[in-house]
Nucleic acid binder design. Sequence first.
DNA 1: AACGTCTATTACAACGTTGTAATGGATTGA
DNA 2: TCAATCCATTACAACGTTGTAATAGACGTT
Lengths: 340, 340
Amino acid sequence: MTSPTLHDVAKLAGVSFKTVSNVINDHPHVAEATRIKVEAAIKQLDYRPNRSARSLRSGRTGAIGLAVPELSLSYFAELADEVISYAEQRDTVVLIEQTGGDPERELEALRGSRRQMTDGLLFSPLGLGNDDADKLDVGFPLVLLGERIFDGPVDHITMENVDAARAATDHLLDAGCRRIAVIGAHTGEVIGSAGLRLSGYRAAIEARGIPYDERLVVDAGPWHRVNGAETMRTLLERDVDFDAVFALNDELALGALRVLNERGIRVPEQVAIIGFDDVDEAQYSLPSLTTVDPGRREIAHIAVDVLLERIGAGSDAPPKREVRSGFRIVQRESTPAVTR
Amino acid sequence: MTSPTLHDVAKLAGVSFKTVSNVINDHPHVAEATRIKVEAAIKQLDYRPNRSARSLRSGRTGAIGLAVPELSLSYFAELADEVISYAEQRDTVVLIEQTGGDPERELEALRGSRRQMTDGLLFSPLGLGNDDADKLDVGFPLVLLGERIFDGPVDHITMENVDAARAATDHLLDAGCRRIAVIGAHTGEVIGSAGLRLSGYRAAIEARGIPYDERLVVDAGPWHRVNGAETMRTLLERDVDFDAVFALNDELALGALRVLNERGIRVPEQVAIIGFDDVDEAQYSLPSLTTVDPGRREIAHIAVDVLLERIGAGSDAPPKREVRSGFRIVQRESTPAVTR
DNA sequence: AACGTCTATTACAACGTTGTAATGGATTGA
DNA sequence: TCAATCCATTACAACGTTGTAATAGACGTT
């Protein structure tokens, strides 16, 4: 019942166990005849090297961590999907941790005992912010994702949030919208997805001579659908005129869309709406949702590549990297076809 | 830079390294004074036992696998969320594998080298079926989820699919619907979610003297939103009268809902629709979706408990278990309030 | 005072692997 | 023919931990 070891294979092949090890590790000096004999024995016993022993000897686990707020959020589920699939191609397993966006649990992800089981971590914080940048100076390979921390001492993969938000806003402006509301802001935040995207919005409207009107900007807590709905209700109660909504992510947009539908407000004729993230669901809402594709797959692949590169590098570490993925606007039904 | 070991702690505390090990493992005979000294040293060095060494020695990894079709499907993302969260409470990490529902990759999940890294597997097959039941006779703790395989030699956690589908259909019947279409069938399938749910449907209508009409039953491939939409279009083209739709899962229902909306068919007035799974999104569609809550959290907790119990049991294994979670109908807007 | 009993600690081996050093045999050249 | 060289294989140690067996000391009993 117990798994075969190098010794079992060696006995069957009639060589020393170290020779079997040499065959497995493509050691330069192995006679062809020996190699064939050993490989036959390996196959016969269905031998697989014991990973714990390998890890103990080499100090590598072959696993990486992925710490995200929660998988129930489509963005992170889809990101995890991409990370797992790509990591598999690179012979790496992924250990997912959910932090709930709680700063304490995010710190725990950095320090906790789970770090013993991985060679490095892909970390997407939500509770921690730029003030916590120094806490990222950990003793293991770490790649930071997202927009919460920019001044960290580690590799960072993100997207051009400001430019993308500006492009999203321009998309609405090009369609003729002039009073564009924003839902999902986090007042006072400068960096972070909310802060960056809001500043992209502001840059876009001001470039066209439209003044920033804070009555059009509504805060929301977590970016869940339910808050999108709530925020849209708040906006409608403010009794301020608007002809478009820029939702800072798709979940908010989908929640808002539901309220607009409920109230009989036609989208995009009366109010256009654009989201951000291009989650799978954006294709299937009614109307389908125009949104920003942040290059999720590209981010996942780059993140895994950078992390594995750093793990492989050991002490002669390359300098810190800052990578931004591309983005594109995905035009669907929730905004008018561009007229300009 | 390298992590401290038992020897480092021992040197600092002035005892042998084995005494430190004894302290850590709550060995019965450790003098109070020694324990205090050692614990101080552990704290001072921030010592954590090396998991690879522990695994090598004990044969346990402290990790379990979770093999699902894909995380992009909300049901599985939400299941993974629950499994990870609960496993964490039980000091276990989860290693997710995506099979894509492909039989080959599902077999690979059972046999592959990743099994070396886990003490057991939670397995939710989609491509394999009852004919493959014998393939589940693997040499490690395995807990089967879902409705694809019932005759396997392993613990199985599932829900009362037939009863739940019957209840869902009754819910529509109670609301006065009489011509109830089904989307997402897999013709010829007997067990499997599709087969079981369809038979629950059939039992419900026939119990009320309504004959089974195969023109009302539409096959779909994978249960994605896009197939829900496609299937609904097919149904509408068949030019057969219907006043309700039982979608065999929520994704199908949401896709179908979109088509009904597009065509201007009012839900639930003209056509009622009920789904299955109670994914998060079901609350936020327009109209919100009546559905069957399959007790996902309960399934996740039971599955982890049963798997860990079996891992702990070793050779004196308990008999195979078959557990069914409870379900309930969640009434929302896509079906009329029950009138009967 | 000698003995056995119990407690606290230590010594040793083993888990399965890989790196380094040593060994033995074949091949080459003078 | 003998040394020098090269190739293939083997012996040994080590990674950090825990189980088992051995040891040393404290204490009570006779």
